[in-house]
Simulated scan of single mutants.
Amino acid sequence: MTEIGHKLICEEHGPNDLAEYAQLADRSAFDYAMISDHYHPWTSTQGESPMVWNVIGAISRATDDLRLGTAVTCPIMRIHPAIVAQAAATAGAQLPGRFFLGVGTGENLSEHILGDRWPEHAVRLEMLEEALEIIRTLWNGKTTSYHGEYYTVENARIYTLPDELPPIPIAADGPKAARKAGEIGDGLIAISPDEELIGAFEDGGGENKPRYAEVSVCYAEDEREAIETAHEVWPQAALPGELMWELPTPAHFEQATEAVSEEDIAEMVVCGSDPDEHIEAIREFVDAGFDHVAVHNVGSNQAEFVEFYEDEVLPAVQ
Rank of each mutant, 00 (worst) to 15 (best):
A259P: 09
G104E: 07
I198L: 04
G205N: 10
Y39H: 12
E312L: 10
G97P: 14
S192Q: 05
A177D: 04
A226I: 04
E242T: 05
E312G: 06
P119Q: 06
E149M: 00
G92L: 09
A156T: 14
E149A: 13
I113G: 02
E120Y: 02
S44M: 06
G182M: 05
Y219P: 06
D311P: 00
S28I: 05
N108W: 09
A88V: 02
C74W: 10
G141V: 08
P162M: 12
Y212L: 03
A303E: 15
G289D: 03
I189Q: 05
I35N: 13
G187F: 03
V84Y: 13
T152I: 07
E149G: 08
L18F: 08
A200V: 05
Y39K: 00
P235C: 08
F253Q: 08
E129G: 01
D222G: 07
V84I: 15
V217S: 12
M127Q: 15
P169K: 04
D264T: 10
G141Q: 01
T90V: 15
H13R: 04
E12S: 01
G174I: 10
G206I: 07
A259S: 15
I265Q: 04
I113K: 09
E164V: 13
A316H: 15
L114D: 14
I189W: 12
S300F: 04
A266C: 07
K209G: 07
N108P: 01
A230D: 15
E228R: 14
K180H: 07
W53I: 09
Q46L: 06
E111K: 14
A33F: 05
T160H: 04
G102Y: 03
P315I: 13
P235G: 11
Y309W: 06
G57P: 11
A25C: 03
I158R: 12
F30T: 02
E12R: 09
I191S: 02
V153Y: 11
H147L: 09
R211D: 11
R179Q: 06
R136Y: 04
L128P: 08
A29P: 12
A220Q: 13
E48N: 03
M268L: 00
G289L: 06
E133Q: 12
A58V: 02
I56R: 09
R283S: 02
D291V: 04
T143S: 15
L66R: 14
D31Y: 03
L243P: 07
H278K: 07
S300Q: 12
E207I: 00
V295H: 11
N208H: 14
R179Y: 01
W53S: 14
Q23L: 10
G187I: 02
I191T: 05
C218H: 13
H147G: 08
E225V: 13
D37L: 00
E312T: 03
I227F: 13
S60W: 00
T73N: 03
G205P: 14
I198V: 15
A91T: 06
D311T: 07
D203P: 06
L95N: 12
A88W: 05
G289H: 10
Y39P: 10
D291Y: 08
H278Q: 03
E12V: 07
N140C: 02
Y150C: 07
P175R: 07
A172L: 08
R124C: 02
V103N: 15
E196K: 07
A237Q: 15
L161E: 12
T45L: 02
Y32S: 09
T229Y: 10
G69N: 12
I168L: 10
E195K: 10
I189D: 05
Y309R: 00
A288L: 03
S145Q: 06
